[in-house]
């Protein structure tokens, strides 16, 4: 995810302090991975240098100085261009799972066991996400659904591969 573009997008609704940006980002998009303060300030410095944000004011309230950032016209154009650009679909052509299956076959290990173990691990995570979805709000549901659909795709691949292990062995074994 482009943190710079996301923070810029959050600034479009009005100027904010770095801390405020971090909090909003974590609430809306952070989930299990909150931003570090360092990341926020490094990103804001870069955006400032590139003219995409400007300092709208500095407050101290007796404590350390806090900069309030505002998005510039160039920043708004940059957010618009990012949103309009479709994300490149992940091709998944260098899959660790596939590599492991082939290596298991090449080294005479049980590839079916490997696939079963992976299957259990995928389902375990799917149960956790389903439970979280059940207790969460719509935002939680959508983000969990995104993960669940990807895990489901992996599982279908695992099933298909399990059913084709014999043929795969013929292809990869010397």
């Amino acid at each position: 995810m482009s943190i710079g573009h996301t923070l810029l997008g959050l600034l479009e609704s009005g100027p904010r302090h770095g801390y405020d940006l971090k909090r909003t980002f974590d609430e809306k998009f952070g989930h299990d991975r909150p931003l570090h303060y360092g990341q926020v300030y490094a990103t804001m410095s870069r955006l400032l240098k590139n003219g995409l944000v400007e300092v709208d004011g500095v407050e101290s309230d007796g404590g350390p100085e806090r900069k309030r950032y505002a998005i510039t016209d160039a920043g708004i154009t940059d957010v618009a261009a990012w949103l309009a650009q479709p994300e490149k679909p992940e091709p998944y052509l260098q899959s660790t799972l596939y590599t492991k299956v082939v290596l298991a076959l090449l080294t005479g290990r049980d590839a079916a066991d490997l696939l079963d173990a992976q299957r259990s691990e995928h389902l375990r995570l799917m149960r956790i996400l389903t439970d979280r979805k059940r207790q969460g709000d719509l935002a939680d549901q959508l983000i969990c659904d995104h993960a669940l659909f990807h895990l489901e795709a992996d599982l279908r691949w695992l099933e298909l591969t399990a059913a084709r292990l014999g043929r795969l062995a013929e292809v990869v074994l010397p």
Partner: peptide
């Protein structure tokens, strides 16, 4: 046969 449905379970058993 759907993993998303099975994810509502406590445990799963695979028949092959």
């Amino acid at each position: 046969h759907e993993a998303r449905v099975a994810a509502y379970s406590d445990r799963d058993v695979v028949v092959r």
